[in-house]
Simulated scan of single mutants.
Amino acid sequence: MYNRRTIDRRLTDEFVAGVQQFLDYAFSQTIHVSKNTVRCPCLKCKNMRFHNKDEITVHLWSRGFMPNYHVWTSHGEEPSEEARKLYDYINDGRISLWPGCQRQTKMSAMSELLNLKSETNMSDACFDRMLTIFRNCMPEGANIPKNFYDTKKMIKQMGLPYVKIHACINDCIIYYKEYNDLNSCPLCKHPRYKNCSERRSTMEPFKVLRYLPITPRLQRLYMSSNSAEHMLWHSNMVHPADVEAWKNFNITHPDFACDPRNIRLGLCTD
């Protein structure tokens, strides 16, 4: 969307294709079309004026898109339910730590305290006691959770989960896919669980791998206009690394490459 001009000031093929893709999408969203016109997102109109497809094409070619218009909210591209929940949570997190507090919000204060707990290996009981002391020292109406459980529950709404996967204590395998139902390692024969029970939910594994799914983390980067802009670095600047590989990828996957918001992941081996 923003890689508009070449060095000699000509429109890039990528930008022309991107404008066409945007217009095709915008005019397909009938709820946002009025008398064969939609809002123009050019640098001057900024979605305040309605124009037809040809007029918007000229505006975008000559002026470019308005800054940070990566999610086309005025043209039918709305946040998902998950994204809307996150935005609601962030708005709630902007609540002051207590009425009139200018230096800390509820979310920023609890994030710092949880970080302190992790760095110092603080026990849950100690954390609960610390919250009680803070609550007694602060003005009436302070927005402080009652205990560690409530604090974790609040932060958990950020929606960046991890997945627990049982692993062999000797790192032979992880109990996943074809190994998911095994009770011992097929290589070293070591048991999967410390205790035996008829109910697997009550059995404690010897080792647990915590996997951080990448998809929700990448989605979060696009939910902020500041970080989303950095995600488009490859379309806004010249980069010397792996130029031939990058160009070959663009040729092989033109539909994917035409939208700079698409994410490419490379495999790095040592």
Rank of each mutant, 00 (worst) to 15 (best):
N47F: 12
L187H: 07
N52L: 01
K177D: 15
D242V: 01
D24G: 03
K247D: 12
N115R: 11
S34Y: 10
N36S: 15
N121F: 09
F65N: 09
A241G: 00
M1E: 09
E140D: 11
A167Y: 02
E82I: 10
R210S: 14
I155N: 13
T105W: 12
R84K: 15
D128Y: 10
L113Y: 10
D150H: 13
P205T: 08
K207T: 02
L212D: 03
Q102F: 01
N183S: 11
E198S: 08
A26R: 05
F249Q: 08
I7S: 03
G266I: 06
L187Y: 08
T6H: 00
I95N: 13
R210M: 08
E198Y: 13
V163N: 10
C258P: 00
L232D: 10
T252D: 01
L218Q: 11
G266H: 12
I56M: 14
L187K: 12
M203D: 03
T12F: 00
H190I: 01
L209Q: 04
C196G: 02
N147Q: 06
K146F: 07
S201K: 12
N170A: 05
A109F: 14
S80Q: 08
M122P: 02
R84Q: 15
C168M: 05
R94P: 00
M1T: 01
C40P: 10
Q104M: 13
M231A: 05
E14L: 02
K207M: 09
N250F: 03
N147L: 08
I144K: 01
C42P: 05
H253M: 04
Y149A: 07
M107N: 11
H166L: 01
K106W: 00
K146E: 13
H32A: 06
R4V: 00
G159S: 05
K106A: 09
I31Y: 05
M110V: 06
L86N: 04
G141M: 06
C185M: 08
P260G: 06
D242L: 09
E198A: 06
P161N: 12
D54R: 10
T105V: 02
I95H: 10
S118L: 06
K156M: 05
P205V: 04
V208S: 14
C101E: 15
I251Q: 11
S74P: 01
